[in-house]
Design a protein around this nucleic acid. Sequence first.
DNA 1: CCAATTGTTATTTA
DNA 2: ATAAATAACAATTG
Length: 274
Amino acid sequence: MPELAEVEFFRKRWSAGHGAKVIAVRLHDDKKVFRGTSTALLKRKLTGARLLDSATSAKQLLFRFSSSHWLGVHLGMSGELRVETPGYAPAKHDHFVLVQRTRQLVFNDPRMFGRVLFSSGPKPPAWWTRIAPAILSKKFTVEAVAGFLKRRGRAPIKAVLLMQERFPGIGNWMADDVLWRAAIHPKRLAGSLTTAEVRTLHRECQKLCRLAFDTIAGQGRYLPPDLNHHIPQSWLFWHRWEDGGRCPRTGQLLRRATAGGRTTCWSPARQRLR
DNA sequence: CCAATTGTTATTTA
DNA sequence: ATAAATAACAATTG
């Protein structure tokens, strides 16, 4: 489920535990979410440590602990973060739990494409600092996008939008939504876009990211009661999942097919192959 | 039983 | 050699 703003939504949930000590760590050792991570070390170092603060970048979460410990979380396809009461009994797919005195911070991931990382040191770990510059940062320029599209010129634009090294945080539904807003057919080859189309695409990426943070992740300290709670019916989002969905702008039937290896939805009246 | 799934990476193909 | 396409990962749901 989680893309850019959804990841931030989950971070805000766990931020309930900022400032509080971890009194126990419960985890499922043998699960794939810990691939490449020493669970013994993670458990030993985080027990007794205080959760100081956290951040998100693209689809990654970073949690900073006392004594220079860093916890990384990627939610993969089906991961989510929850806050439970101290008496909560872990469910089947609750693979990682930080127990605090007044709450439990739970990482749940049935499909286990997600990941838990751990490292120690004075500076944030490399896997965090090498994430591509955010779409809402100054470095996400139209020139950078144009250059990238040229280099990936023979791939469908839909596939290119999913590449995290240039569009960090964009996932399947955001890619479809951006292309729909920009009125660009997902199967157009990246190198075939006109200068005007590249400009529009660049702008719509920024607009959708801003919109997504506001509606999904909430503003300030406010956290929506549920993911997607405030997403308006006017987004492609609500109409793209199943057959029979209609374009919120034209009212016509949406098309679905696979493009760039993923299920893709577009509005034929707005987005044309040519 | 078959096909699907909002992600990433290793392997295969062009 | 490079880039694009595909398979694989795991679990559940329709």
